[in-house]
Design a protein around this nucleic acid. Structure first.
Lengths: 222, 222
DNA sequence: TAGATTGTTAATCGATTAACAATC
DNA sequence: TAGATTGTTAATCGATTAACAATC
């Protein structure tokens, strides 16, 4: 596998390729060209080929790409076969919804424990995952190698919990709190899921669209 | 306000500025320079100024930007003052978690109704929002102007519900299903919240980081 | 073989960064 | 006024697109 630095944009497209390839494979399609795949995702064929060529040669000239083997290559690039471990911190509504709905194992990640501060929850199991007390987090981290922490705590404790996680060597934080955790100093990886950012961008485009429609309508009246 | 086409990257940064400005304003800070704001968000001062200049002149030379008024400008650009209406479709776990946790009104959006197919839910209220039967969706949409549909239905019905929404003139879909809805043909705006894409990108970076650490370690042994 | 499509290099386009005159 | 920082133009950098030889 090539080892040049791959741009962020490319990485963000990989999961989309993966999802589309899964769909194709479910529909019984076993080969696809860069042009077809690009069309399905709104990309040019050049871009598709360039993206894959960051990592190696996955296609066959004159034929295209084998759906299943391309899918496996991408899954490997994304680290889905590495058996990453995760813990979830904060079994509130979002935390519970994630435990209940999100199938971590589908993406190669093993959710091994959850943590909360509420006495009623501590010691119980939810969806097969044991819920520990928050005060045992540090100890747990020193005894277990955890790759990813799913952060679903209230805004107010986000920063202090983050400090514990980074101090104890968690590689990455999947941040569901509405707090900007990215600090220049820290080496911990942070992936933000900011619902509000997502809604606000959408809101921008809706506003733009409606303004355009209104402008068009007023031109037509004249 | 200027009306050149603003790039997607700029739009995606606006909510981050907004969040940081809210934080600053809560801390009682009333002015900020492009350099300071950039540092807080990991951007250059040039980029910050360029971003704002897409929309107008919000600063004062020699002084910087007034936190509160800049915040208001950005809120306006994002359409937060337009009173957009939203409905939520699919009151399952994710849908319920959103209704319970996500404060739509904080972002200028009014959640006016929810829809589900489950008889036990229909006619009830959840967090002050009435839950209608799915079979009344078309009628509801023809009687009410809805800007945004929050799509939290199971994967299997995502596409058919989307058709109803687009046919009935909903401007935008906030898509929480793990289905690629973006179709070249449709004019409806789609904003995807793909948890799995987010986790997989993070997983990629964790894998990369661990590979680098391993490579470094093996070099040191030699 | 002929047709198709990759892998890859070159050209273009757009976004970010640097620089600086304007001005508060 | 002097210092600071914007708004904006120019330079650089990187990502996307186009083109085409290689080859299945």
């Amino acid at each position: 596998m090539k080892q040049v630095k791959v741009s962020n944009n490319v990485i963000r497209r990989l999961p989309r390729y993966l999802r589309k390839l899964d769909e194709l494979s479910e529909s019984g399609i076993d080969k696809i060209s860069s042009r077809q795949l690009g069309e399905l995702l709104g990309l040019t064929s050049s871009q598709v080929r360039q993206d894959f060529n960051c990592f190696g040669e996955f296609g066959q000239q004159g034929y295209g790409y084998n759906v299943v083997s391309l899918r496996e290559q991408i899954a490997g690039i994304l680290g889905m076969d590495r058996g990453f471990t995760a813990i979830l911190i904060g079994v509130g509504n979002i935390g519970r919804a994630m435990m209940e709905n999100f199938c971590f194992s589908d993406w190669g990640v093993q959710l091994v424990a959850a943590f909360d501060i509420k006495p009623a929850l501590i010691g119980t199991e939810y969806k097969g995952v044991h819920i520990h007390g928050m005060d045992t987090l540090e100890q747990y981290l020193s005894e277990n190698k955890i790759d990813i922490a799913v952060l679903t705590v209230p805004k107010t404790v986000a920063v202090s919990v983050t400090r514990t996680l980074t101090d104890r060597g968690v590689d990455a934080i999947w941040n569901f709190t509405n707090v900007e955790l990215t600090e220049p100093s820290s080496t911990t990886l942070v992936e933000n899921v900011h619902f509000s950012d997502s809604l606000l961008s959408l809101s921008y485009f809706v506003a733009e669209r409606q303004d355009e429609a209104a402008a068009k309508a007023s031109r037509e009246v004249k």
